[in-house]
Design a protein around this nucleic acid. Structure first.
Length: 296
RNA sequence: GGCGGGGUAGCCAAGUGGGAAGGCCGCGGUCUGCAAAACCGCUAUCGAGCGGGUUCGAUUCCCGCCCCCGCCU
């Protein structure tokens, strides 16, 4: 995989910077945002503006129906395809997004494990954590010792993989601990500034008509259903909360999300950190362009 | 002015004569196929409106004061 990435928490300003960088180095952008990849909810997911899209081709933006389930592997395959396509056209691929696991899957690969089996997963989800732990202890004693026993989602996946492959889950993970090379840039800002931007962005979303957008959006299922703010806006439409409450809720949820992203990316050694609170965007863009050129 | 209820962390809120549940917020973190997800940890200490008193010991009992809510005049 030889694409350069720009990662960072929401509302940091990735899209704008990426578009500028792409324009300067003649790159095309591959979206690495788990929700902007869906077709619809453009306002709610803060997709790059028309202007940016007109300036630089964006791939994997709105390419999946809102009813389709997504996951890291699907993204990886799709992204790889987009990258190849871009490179075949003689251009540079610039991967941009804030979905940590998706990016990690792309830069470090994923073990070739079976995908989720609907029925099996449903059945396992119906079990209690204790039952799952007991089952995992049988199938994968090592994994059972390492796993977060309170996190059902992880327990289910672990048991699922054991059952589907007949081998312990813990023995099948790909080595992510090997030498990691710089895969890209981690853009971030000081907390106070980031939070202000988030708050402002949510307000702008409402001013631009997110509520209408959600109201006229058709069926949304599985993964897309988790879009931050969707539940809140639906509650607003149902009259279960006032608009100011709704705005505040979404701002809060977004701040928390941003914190999780910060925690994730700070640990990733393969990204070179760039603090946008300390560099103005033109300086940052210049810096990133240099890095990207070195990378290419 | 009278009667009743109440004043416990940023917010909501329980309980007890032996030295402060829980929730929210906030903060920190985990992360190998639902990831804008899921999960975990931390967060009142010359403390409990203020001042006295009783007691070996009071946040918990008594007295006074202040403030809030409801009702009454």
């Amino acid at each position: 995989m030889s694409a350069f990435c720009i990662a960072g928490p929401t509302a940091t300003g990735k899209s704008e910077i990426a578009a500028q960088v792409a324009r300067l180095i003649g790159a095309e952008i591959v979206n690495a945002d788990a929700f902007q990849i869906y077709d619809g909810l453009d306002l709610l997911t803060a997709k790059p503006s028309e202007a940016m899209r007109a300036m630089v081709p964006h791939h994997l933006l709105g390419s999946v129906p809102l009813t389709e389930e997504m996951n890291a592997e699907k993204f990886r395959v799709a992204a790889l395809g987009a990258i190849r396509e871009i490179q075949a056209g003689g251009k540079i691929a610039l991967v941009v997004g804030g979905s940590g696991l998706y990016l990690k899957a792309l830069t470090h690969g994923l073990a070739s494990l079976p995908k989720a089996d609907r029925l099996l997963r449903e059945k396992l989800t119906g079990a209690t954590n204790e039952e799952l732990i007991a089952q995992l202890s049988e199938l994968d004693p090592v994994g059972a010792g390492e796993i977060d026993r309170k996190n059902k989602r992880r327990l289910v996946r672990a048991v699922e993989v054991c059952l589907l492959t007949g081998r312990p889950f813990s023995a099948q993970r790909t080595g992510w601990n090997g030498a990691e090379t710089i895969a890209g840039i981690f853009l971030f800002r000081e907390r106070a500034e980031l939070y202000e931007r988030i708050n402002r962005r949510v307000e702008q979303m409402f001013a631009s008509g997110v509520v209408e957008e959600v109201r006229r959006t058709g069926e949304v299922r599985s993964t897309a259903e988790k879009t931050l703010g969707l539940r809140e806006i639906l509650a607003l439409i149902a009259g279960e909360m006032t608009e100011p409450e709704c705005v505040a809720k979404i701002q809060q949820a977004t701040r928390r999300y941003a914190k999780r992203q910060l925690t994730w990316f700070q640990r990733q050694v393969s990204f070179w950190p760039v603090n946008l609170s300390r560099h103005d965007s033109s300086a940052a863009i210049e810096l990133i362009v240099q890095r990207a050129k070195v990378f290419a």
